[in-house]
């Protein structure tokens, strides 16, 4: 079971995050200030650290991050911040943060990102492969050609990228924001349903003889490519 360290000065928020993680099948520990966070992160084994950007007392979030990375702690860090400023996000990622989430956030967004961080760490995955296969879906990365049950499908470049993104993370919940960041490469909190339209188009192309596509909707705010 994944074990997560929550560094958050607001007890109620920390409790809610903890509850969301437990519901998601993870366990968590909680500290309220930066110095404690550094000590705890160094002594115990955590799979991911959820780190609030603003912390009271001696060390703020970014300083905690710098202290951890400076002492060789490589646990993935997800930074939480009330600031959505790009500058803040860039600074956080530059200092060794692995992902960044702006408050307020949906908990599914949080758990999906924590999942992704843990997985990314587990599989230093061989993206050098020339092909990807998930169930009946097959991707020839060299020719940039997708096929379903042996039949080639015509995809627009962006549809191909979208499918590749799903196939690199089979079985994982992907929120709209994660898809947008991963496929389009821009960062902003898009509140329109445009992602849904893109996914719907891709799905239609992946339907086979009346059977629904392998991409399923996760209630709340995401999608998932069914593994088998």
């Amino acid at each position: 079971m994944a074990h997560i360290l929550i560094v958050e000065d607001d007890i109620k928020t920390a409790r809610e995050i903890g509850a969301a993680l437990v519901d998601h099948g993870m366990s968590s520990a909680h500290v309220v200030d930066g110095i404690e966070a550094v000590r705890e992160a160094k002594t115990a084994r955590y799979d991911t650290i959820i780190l609030d950007r603003m912390l009271p007392g001696g060390l703020n979030g970014l300083e905690v991050l710098a202290a951890l990375r400076g002492t060789g702690v490589s646990t993935p860090v997800l930074i939480l911040s009330a600031l959505s400023a790009v500058s803040d996000r860039v600074r956080g990622l530059r200092m060794g943060g692995d992902d960044y989430l702006t408050k307020p956030f949906d908990f599914i967004e949080l758990t999906a990102r924590v999942d992704a961080l843990i997985r990314r760490r587990g599989s230093a995955h061989g993206s050098q492969d020339m092909e990807l296969s998930v169930g009946e879906l097959h991707l020839d990365l060299y020719r940039r050609q997708a096929s379903l049950a042996g039949r080639e499908i015509d995809l627009l470049p962006r549809e191909y990228q979208l499918l590749e993104h799903f196939m690199r993370h089979p079985g994982d919940v992907m929120t709209r924001a994660m898809i947008f960041e991963g496929v389009w490469g821009y960062h902003y909190d898009d509140r329109t349903n445009v992602i849904d339209v893109h996914v719907a188009k891709l799905r239609r192309k992946l339907e086979l003889q009346g059977r629904p596509s392998a991409i399923e909707t996760v209630r709340g705010s995401g999608y998932r490519l069914v593994k088998a």
Binding site: R158, W184, T192, N193, V194, V197, H198, K201
Partner: peptide, 8 residues
């Protein structure tokens, strides 16, 4: 390109 499907 991003908004094309929505316009469609």
């Amino acid at each position: 390109e991003y908004y094309e499907p929505a316009a469609d």
